[in-house]
Amino acid sequence: MTRSVIFGYCANPETLEGIAWLSCFLTTGKHMSFYVSFGTVLLLLAITAPTALLFGFGGASAARSRIAPLSWFGRGYIAVVRGVPDIAFFLFFVIALDQGFEWLRHQALCPDWDEPIRQGNDFVVCAAAKLPLSTADQWVHEVYGFFLAVLTFAIVFGAFAANVLFGAMRAVPHAQLETAAAYGMTPRQTFWRVLVPQMWVYALPGLSNLWMVLIKATPLLFLLGVEDIVFWARELGGSKTARFTDYPHGDWRMWYFLGLLVFYLAFTRVSEIVLDRLMKRLTRGQATAGGEAQRKAAA
């Protein structure tokens, strides 16, 4: 017998009705996992967005570098990752990434290993090189899976962000950079003091699009073995027979997915409001149509 962790009267759910039944049903351990998974998704977004932006900034800076190999690297990263379908990337890349890490650790930790690492279909490294160790607690495995997810999302969305930032850097009026050079600034100073502060206003519309797409892409988490809100909605909503649960019900997936719909819509709406404000702030004092309009309104 599994009972609610909150309400004492949930010991015999078959005797309950209406609100009491619902209050017990909605507080089962399984539902708690569902609620926690909302936190997982928000945490993923909170970590992935800045990381992807960092990757994007690195990619864009590399792409416009005057050092040829660095520029090739940046352009290659943008082109390859943007070209590969997301789902292929998520299915293939994560396993490759995980095996890559384990291979590196294997080389470092088990130099005496004499068996091949690839045995037919199997990928076998020594026990000490496993990531995480097979002795580790389940939460370590979950955190590691989450970390791989963040990294994969950051690489994918970083490429798109790199393209947006690359374009934004080119959109900054060239006269600004020439003026900076005329004042005797080095290319580095010009980049950091003139180019970067002005590029955001050009980048924001593209980045805000990316943010919206990123929010909607979080269900891909389940492909990576992280139990996200869509997984739990499907699991909880599926019909349950009385033999396997204290709370039998029919196919309720519609209601759970309706809940997700509301969550995603509310979340994107809040994002829109915040991004609008950010846009107003970034436009201030800029040599753009928006900045001009602000100046006129103030005068």
């Binding site: 599994t2 089962t28 351990g29 399984k30 708690m32 996992s33 699991e235 033999r243 649960t245 204290d246």
Partner: peptide
Amino acid sequence: PYNFLNDAG
């Protein structure tokens, strides 16, 4: 009945 997640998850 082979494998499933119970109410406790």
